[in-house]
Design a protein around this nucleic acid. Structure first.
Lengths: 233, 233, 233, 233
DNA sequence: AATGAATGAGGCTTCATTCAT
DNA sequence: AATGAATGAAGCCTCATTCAT
């Protein structure tokens, strides 16, 4: 009997319904279905019925493995946040080079991921954040880590600038911790906004989006570090 | 006697429940309550029961005046979008001065409004936009008008820069229509993102937020117009 | 000021809304509106809102004059039943001639009334009867009176037949009270059924309907009185 | 053990509530309950609450299986119309003999069914027909089929009469298509009317009702075919 | 004579969740 | 490993009816 239902890594056998799959596979199917459903309808409007149907299983099985709608949503957020954080971290950390190069690599990874997994991006950027606790917090943790990367890069650039040459030119010593935080917020906010806009706008590639943001933001940061502030006359 | 319930523009008199108010007053109370409820819970999770209770009326009266949850939400979005658009437009149009001065004025008005009416801002920026049609479209119209203001100011600055001196320095002629659009998107996106962040972060004033954004964005724009692009080495 | 609103018998003055009409006029307007509304939607589905609007008055006035939906429906049934009974009675009683002639006159009056007041006929034949007590009883009283007329005419014909000549020919003495009742029921049932069918079928006149029924029924009655029963072989 | 709840075709075992019955059984219970409820109160006034309670299940289960009040009513009408049509068709078609014999058989089947299933008969003859589309249409289809049977029998009798002897006697050739239609309408209308009257009148049997109608109608039809029309003098 | 303002009660429908196998 | 059967709770909406003028 073992093997009678032989299943490959990909999941379903042939065209029919695959039964008696191992738990890990079933859970992935459910989470995949949940991502789609939550992305499309939002947490409240998504229904366990639809998710079970999309996953090709009965509702009790969803409850057996994921316990409740709330835990299911949390599991989805965690899985997708880890994935996104993973690709961004891989692009930014443990790699040498000047901070702007690393920021560029991180942005490219970020925009590419958002473009390739639009439902995941929608869940993280919209559905989780607008759903209140504990979901928003779950997504905020990931965002904070990304913001910390960015703040790190900005700070690094500022120190380099202070020290001598570099992107920021010489002479700027004015960037404090709180300001770095606000700048990182603005940059990450821009990136998120651009990512959603790019996903919704046909013909905009991840590379274009990343380039626009670098043009827009990094040179502005450079100015800031040269203490060239704008101020009302 | 006549006048025993005399009511002012502001609404309820004293601490007791005011009964038999004129329709216009009641409608405003209901819309106010709806803004709070939709902001807190989102469209789906907000309940007509809670809205009625917050407004101090019975549910049937809400239906008598606003017809349905959908129409109520639409009415809320329209009212708040008009209000926000109004203050921004007043700050930007029909006023002379260089484009950066007018952008500064507009940003200040925008951040101030968002700070003073956080629920309205949440409804417009989050609840309406994530609820799909027809609500997202209703809010998008307002956003588009604001984005058009900003694009106009950027374009104007670019023309001035092309023409000679000005913020952007001389010589830059590289900013095309599509690029202006993307920049305006990024700037508006940053502004929205910053506004929500400022509302959620104690101690951040509207003026600070506006200043951060001007520093961050306008000088970056200036660089762009000098054709000082960032590009991967 | 009296007379400033001068109104004619017909009701509304000019094109605008007539205000301060005498009670009798207002009540007729309300009953007219109610007949239409009850005929179209049935008792349950008809709404006091619609009736008030059709009557051109506010709802409280309807309650002031007619007290409740139930009483309003009852008032409608009574008014329409009296009217229908009136025209039929006028055609049948207090008039000489043989019973078949009088039946013919009664049927003609009945079908004509139903054709000319289809809403009233619908209320009586359908809406009242299917609404349970006390409404069905109200309509049943009228139907019983009409059935009694018919039974009277059948009985009279039977006696004539027994006595000698007449429609029914000679020799038949077999028609008892219970049978007369059943026959009258069948005839009245046919008439009602035909009236509704005629109203719903374009091009069928009251005279045609009456003729069909006389052909169908009266000669059959004649046979019965000649004891020519049908019986399974 | 398995089988502890063993249930027969008829439904519930013993006096206690049977749980976890198969869908088909539950659906039949719900339809039975719905027939009773719709017959008593009419479509609008019947409540899903009462139906669920009569069926011995919770409301959500009714919705799970029957989807909505409208679909439930439609399902009821279809089931009962099929059943009634079935017994009448079985009595009339695929059976030899003269048309009057077959009409007699059909009427007997009809009146018996109406007597044995008064709620079903009320739903079909009253509740469905007065509820407007799409319900009236659903019931009208069944009625039309029955009327077609009757028209067929009348036409057959007329042709026999034309041909020579037969019920209708000789010589009559005057019955046209439209007239046959009207006669069939009148006969079916009488039958319906009589059925409801018989159900409401204690002591009237189906056989009596059928006999009354045959006496009343068939001999009348015979006269018609002999061209013995009634006409006002 | 007439009405704008207001509500208690109830109906249809949906959904997350559990039970028993 | 998996599911068919079932429900408590809650939400949107409507309607007959009344209040205060």
């Amino acid at each position: 009997m073992g093997g009678v239902w032989g299943f490959g890594v990909g999941g379903v056998v042939g065209g029919g319904k695959a039964r008696r799959l191992p738990r890990v596979v079933r859970e992935r199917q459910m989470l995949d279905a949940a991502v789609r459903s939550f992305a499309r309808h939002g947490y409240q409007a998504a229904s366990m019925d639809e998710i079970a149907e999309l996953a090709g299983v009965s509702k009790p099985l969803v409850y057996l493995y994921l316990n409740s709608k709330e835990e299911l949503f949390t599991a989805v957020i965690r899985r997708e946040a880890q994935a996104l954080l993973g690709v961004v971290a891989e692009a930014v950390v443990g790699r040498g080079g000047p901070p702007d190069e690393r920021l560029w690599a991180g942005l490219l990874a970020f925009f590419s991921y958002a473009a390739e997994h639009p439902d995941a991006w929608t869940v993280l950027s919209v559905r989780a954040r607008t759903q209140g606790e504990p979901f928003a917090g779950e997504a905020a943790r990931m965002r904070d880590e990304i913001t910390a990367f960015v703040a790190g890069l900005i700070g690094e650039a500022a120190r380099e600038a202070r020290g001598g040459g570099g992107v920021a030119g010489r002479g700027g010593a004015a960037v404090g911790g709180r300001e770095v935080e606000a700048l990182a917020q603005a940059l990450v906010g821009s990136a998120e906004s651009l990512a959603s806009w790019a996903n919704a706008t046909p013909g905009v590639t991840a590379k274009e989006a990343a380039a626009t943001l670098m043009d827009f933001a990094w040179s502005g940061l450079g100015n800031l570090m040269k203490s060239e502030r704008w101020s009302p006359r």
